[in-house]
Amino acid sequence: MSTTTQEVKQAEKEPLFGKKERRLITDPLNDNNPITVQVLGICSALAVTSLVYPSVVMAVAVVFVTAFSSLATSLLRNYIPKSVRMIVQLVIIATLVTVVELTLKYLNYPVYKQLSVYIGLIITNCIVMGRLEAFSMANKPWRSFLDGIGNGLGYGLILIAVGVVREVFGKGSLFAGSPLEMKIIGNTEAYWINTETSTMFGWYANNNLMVLPAAAMFVIGIIIWIQRSRNTKLVDVS
């Protein structure tokens, strides 16, 4: 009897995947999305989303950086001198970003070339440092880690959604540059729908605007619109 209550108490204190822990991951996906609700990390969301594949790589990289920088900051939070805490956070983030850069160079050089400067710019992504300041400095490692994963995923989700829209309408393909490449619509035989021969889609042409970073702004705007019309409690927040 006594042992069970103890177990329950312990479980209440530090459950691995309790309700709160789950919310740490699911909240940033919708109600507290870093891009559409907090409007952070827009710069890279505009820059890397013209194709899906680099967006996915970027999303994975950011999840890795937010998760492990949150974990590291949280582990060190009681030792970090307050006067230099931001510099310490930046050192941690920069280290992890360098790890990502070296790994990418090792595993997939063409994508490394394609993302080029934006990998380095993860360091300045407000989402990462924002979560370290707001959450990891005051929370335990496991929860910080989950918060990092959640926010990284929330960012990545929007990135990939924007990437899909931009690539399909801008280039007529999906996952270009990866082994999964799908050619959907275009003016050669390589595409599923060949606009040269198809009678139904003869009028179709790729939208060049979609290739430009400005298109990401429109797409994100539309995503915010849809999200807020479905989730009305967000409307007052802004």
Binding site: Y79, I80, P81, K82, S83, V84, I87, V88
Partner: peptide, 10 residues
């Protein structure tokens, strides 16, 4: 918060 600690930590 003394300087020595900060320097050693960094």
């Amino acid at each position: 918060e003394n300087n020595r600690y900060v320097i050693i930590f960094v």
